[in-house]
Nucleic acid binder design. Sequence first.
DNA 1: CCATTTTAGTTAGCTGCCTAACTATTAGCC
DNA 2: GGCTAATAGTTAGGCAGCTAACTAAAATGG
Lengths: 189, 189
Amino acid sequence: MPLLLLKDLPRYECLLEAVKKFPDLDPSACDVFLNLLRTGDEVFRVTENNYARHGLSQGRFGVLMLLKKRSAPATAEGGEHCLPAGPLTPAALAEAAGVTRATMTGLIDTLERDGLVKRVRDAHDRRMMSVNLTPKGRKLLEKILPSHFRAMAGIMSPLKESERKTLVSLLNKILQHASTLSLAQAKRD
Amino acid sequence: MPLLLLKDLPRYECLLEAVKKFPDLDPSACDVFLNLLRTGDEVFRVTENNYARHGLSQGRFGVLMLLKKRSAPATAEGGEHCLPAGPLTPAALAEAAGVTRATMTGLIDTLERDGLVKRVRDAHDRRMMSVNLTPKGRKLLEKILPSHFRAMAGIMSPLKESERKTLVSLLNKILQHASTLSLAQAKRD
DNA sequence: CCATTTTAGTTAGCTGCCTAACTATTAGCC
DNA sequence: GGCTAATAGTTAGGCAGCTAACTAAAATGG
């Protein structure tokens, strides 16, 4: 998340004060909003810092993860029912990652330049490419993942198990609602 | 927030499954982590969409807000005790917004190009600039703010007042901890 | 069966973020 | 007073996001 309104969030009294000038302002909504973005940003920075040491960004890491999931040996013990099977095209990666195809082109370009990924043109439909992890890419991922998992665990360590459940469920309420707002906005165009 | 790991978050069973391969993975921590970033991203997009219609981005909006706070007539009724008084330099803006001075230079460049902001060189210390809202910038902000406040209220509408309090307090626990992690990382360099 | 439309991917050009290196000015200290 | 340090801002160059416009290939359908 990019530049945030403020590194130091306004105190609640300031929000209450501001209502006098802006009747539309809902202090508690504003407070949640600011804290959500601020916390998300901070958490994001910590983990990004983590794999930046291995030359990856959030975006590059995400692409590698998607490829890894797909190319994992589909063992009978499963766990791979999370994603449908089939070859991964740039368009599918873009869709799964929530970015445009143009952005994905750029990401794959640099990943391929660094030898972590390889493009292969589809034989049947020559418009399509399929993107695959190289051994080098797979090795890098295996090296990074444990520390990434430890970083996530570290960040969340102040929360008890029950608090985590509560937090996720509150976030989900917002996410559900915000998604419908997003869709409504998109439809309006 | 940029590209997220996944538009569709992994289901909890998948996380439990993954622990078998990665003992470092803490499923509930991972779940909170993913939901936090995902929700933050979605909320961010909704509001960004909102002022994008007026030609502003999060960053540009943030700079204008900082300038507005500072340049507001320091009424006796106050509310302005949230920020120290004094002229706003690019460096101070960068610090408050949590970006580098170089980034702030770019933001001010485009804001000035669009006539929303004006740079003035300090008479006493000729290294410094002070940045001020133009009337046009102030008018734009006044126009956007009410809908921005309504957007925030709308996004948070599914949460009751008590849930909002809970959410903020849980987020704060994470933020506090993540901030110390950030500092520790920074010191290590 | 050929023209049109649709689809996959890329390219070009914008913003906003970064780091590193540079310029100009001030401050500090013999 | 005049080097040297530090400070304010900008510049240069890279990455990652976007939209819009383009190319190539496949699908559609009259």
